[in-house]
Design a protein around this nucleic acid. Structure first.
Lengths: 221, 221
DNA sequence: AGAATAGTGTCTGTCAGACATTATCTG
DNA sequence: CAGATAATGTCTGACAGACACTATTCT
């Protein structure tokens, strides 16, 4: 019976591949590069003595620029079809990154709108990994406070609502949205400052609070 | 920039490790074995040309016995800490299995009650993998129809309710439970047969329907 | 003054949770 | 007939969704 049999000789390479998404100009965007095999997600190989998350962090800063701060990173799933990479047997561990839409200075052109990408034209199985990442992000906005990961440190209710609208592709009623966000203690914390950066009446600025789960959850239209 | 760099020489072994759970005697149980390093989850190594799910299926039938049918299998997460296995660099892909509580003939003693297991005494990082699997199973009962995976092909409402109670560790009101289960079309399909296998008034038998998601979800106490 | 955006309250229908009794079988 | 389990309906409080107007700033 197969409980704790000893490992065989190593025969896999292990990679980390990122679905790094952000909201820019009210559009959900992902970090990619053009390659001879089509648009590709960033990837790197995990070193012999390196942790998976360490490899993901290293890759993220390399691909997105060092100015990226305050992102959220979580494991997505693993992809190991024997023929997914023709060059070798590669097991890919997918990671999902949620990044604020600002400070994208050095690699701004690498972020492309998600609904302009043809999944079938992407390198390897990156179309499928991308879809998994987007669905995970959409689902997690429902029951976690992760939407604030897309916002600058201080944000307005309109900006937060805009994140939900961009990720879900819906429009949300400002009054109901406001009520539901404030219903979860510690989701957002009001500051005593306002901004006019969007024109019109000054908007209250909020910061992310300590809560991580939403009670009750927000629902997609 | 690290987009599609070629793979290095293989330096990992990849394993599949199972969190196979069932409900027996109103108790959530998991498939384990005693080893010199403590209770361990079943594991096997993925062959050079083998798909991950193929390895998981192979392992499941080896560890649980060939009579196991109608199980649900899904990927859980991957575990790759450099020091998780002292013998080699092993990347473990965890899989969650939900199995019916019957037909556990040949390996019945390998199923142990989950709340009697000391996570810290388990081999490798199996305590953490087990916790991830149990939490995933608990969460998925809320918004999917997977509870039927724990039931025989024909089951009563009491039995289905018993699954929820065992997995969640709560008690549920029979009337409210009934109403909520029947509210999702295609969750359960009534047959025209009844059983008296639990004594008392004969109970209607149901089969699992085609639905996979619950609208609205069931909630844990 | 006009344009732009922020901010706010009510009403109504639906859903969730609490709760007790009758029905059908076995021994 | 006694014991065991199945099956069922109502009431009430809470929440979700729909909906329109006033407030504040800038130019």
């Amino acid at each position: 019976m197969a409980f704790l049999t000893p490992p065989p000789a190593p025969d896999f390479s292990v990679s980390v591949e990122l679905v790094a998404v952000t909201v820019r100009d009210a559009t959900l965007s992902v970090l990619t590069a053009r390659t001879p095999h089509g648009p590709a997600l960033p990837r790197t190989f995990v070193g012999r003595d390196e942790a998976l998350t360490a490899a993901a962090d290293r890759l993220l800063h390399q691909a997105a620029g060092a100015e990226l701060q305050r992102h959220h990173l979580e494991q997505l799933a693993s992809y190991g079809a024997p023929d997914r990479d023709r060059d070798a047997r590669v097991l890919a561990v997918g990671y999902l990154v949620l990044a604020p839409g600002l400070d994208l200075a050095s690699h701004a052109d690498a972020w492309v709108a998600i609904d302009t990408l043809d999944r079938t034209a992407m390198a390897l199985d990156h179309g499928a990994i991308l879809d998994d990442g987007v669905e995970r992000a959409r689902a997690k906005l429902e029951y976690t406070t992760l939407a604030t990961s897309f916002c600058p440190t201080r944000f307005t209710m309109s900006e937060l609502r805009g994140v939900y609208e961009a990720v879900w592709g819906t429009t949300l009623d400002p009054r109901n949205f406001n009520r539901k966000v404030l219903a979860t203690d510690g989701f957002t914390l009001a500051t005593d400052e306002r901004t006019t950066r969007s024109g019109g009446r000054p908007a209250l600025l909020y910061t992310a609070g300590p809560a991580t789960a939403l009670h009750p959850p927000l629902t997609r239209g």
